[in-house]
Simulated scan of single mutants.
Amino acid sequence: MRQILCLLPLAFVAVLAVRHWPVLAEGFAKLPAAEPGWLLAAGSTTCLAWVAAACTRQGAVVERLPAFRLLATQFAAGAANHMLPTGLGAGAVNLRFMTVCGLPLARSSAALALYMLAEALGRITLLAALLVAFPGALRLGTLLPGGALESLLVVTVAVVCVLVTVLLLVRRLRTAVRDFLRTALGEARSVHARPARALALWGGSLAFPALQAAGLVAVGRALELPVPPMHMALAYLAATVAVALVPTPGGLGSVEAALVVALVAAGGPAAVATAVVVAYRIITVWLPLLPGALTLGALVRFKVL
């Protein structure tokens, strides 16, 4: 069974590449025309984003995790994240890694929830700061046109009401949630009692989306997208916050569409914006996907996961 699990990521990459071959071919065709220095910068920020993710994961737990294996796990989690929707792949990989490192399942789950909260708050904080600094940079109405924002709010409120109702009616579920919240709050207090852990948690949660946005800016400069760098970063953050509500594996399809719309809303020509997004996803998703799958298989093979 373990050998089968080692081969599953490679099979998934092959299927994914066949399904998206036209996009891959188009993206690789555009890369030779780009400025190589800026493409190298985009690749560097992608690598640094894995380091930032590892710092945030370490900051979410009091115990010291093995640094090299933690970093390798973040690299492998990027590949796993394209197998399940909305970050579930990366969450499952990191949850398994923490339990193998000796953390109880309840504390590992609490650390995972703390990481997800910190990453979301970091991304929203950067987005809010850029919106305040550049209020006219992005026409937000173009991201959710035709009353879509109102519909999204109605659906969100309805889902929250349903969850609260179920929570109130099912006693066993209510007890489990209460126990989880108690564990999560205890873990958060323990982490914030150590300044080094708190700095790693919140510093990494801010650095991670900032580095991802910097990668898009670098690709935009490489392909001469006529949009100011900070406006491109704002477009990236707005698009990724919007697609967080779309449950697609790794954001494939939804991220590309939202990024193109956001870059056009920031003032970029549609053709150049599309080229930038395709090249950016090639560098940040497709090029690391095969080595990430190999790393994931190796971690499973050697029982790190």
Rank of each mutant, 00 (worst) to 15 (best):
R2M: 07
L5M: 14
P9H: 09
L10T: 10
A11T: 01
L16A: 15
V18F: 06
W21C: 05
W21E: 06
P22M: 00
A25I: 11
G27Q: 09
G27A: 07
A29I: 07
A33Y: 13
A34T: 06
P36E: 02
L39Y: 08
L40Y: 10
A41E: 11
A42P: 07
S44D: 06
T46F: 02
W50R: 06
W50N: 09
V51F: 10
T56A: 11
T56Q: 03
R57L: 05
A60F: 10
V61T: 00
V61E: 00
V62P: 06
E63D: 15
R64Y: 06
P66A: 02
L70Y: 04
T73E: 13
Q74A: 08
Q74G: 05
A76Y: 05
A77P: 01
A80K: 01
H82A: 12
H82G: 09
P85F: 12
T86E: 14
T86W: 06
L88H: 06
A90V: 07
A92N: 01
F97V: 00
M98L: 14
M98V: 01
L105E: 03
A110K: 00
A111W: 00
L117A: 06
A118I: 01
E119P: 11
R123A: 09
I124C: 15
I124A: 02
I124Y: 12
T125Y: 03
T125G: 04
A128E: 02
P135E: 01
A137P: 14
A137W: 08
T142I: 13
G147Y: 10
G147N: 08
L149C: 05
L149F: 08
S151V: 05
L152S: 13
L153F: 09
A158S: 09
A158F: 09
V159A: 08
V162L: 12
V164H: 14
V166P: 10
L167M: 11
L167F: 11
V170K: 08
R172M: 03
T175S: 04
A176K: 08
R178I: 15
R182Q: 05
R182A: 13
R194F: 09
P195A: 01
A198I: 10
L201M: 12
W202N: 12
F208W: 09
A213V: 00
A214K: 02
A222R: 05
M230K: 07
L234G: 03
L237A: 07
T240W: 02
A242C: 15
V243F: 03
V243P: 13
A244M: 02
A244F: 11
L245S: 07
L245K: 15
P247H: 00
T248L: 08
L259E: 09
L259I: 01
L259Q: 03
V261L: 04
V261C: 01
A265W: 14
A266T: 04
A270Q: 09
A270W: 15
A270D: 04
A275F: 14
V277S: 00
I283V: 12
L290F: 07
T295H: 03
L299T: 12
R301K: 09
F302D: 04
V304Y: 13
V304H: 02
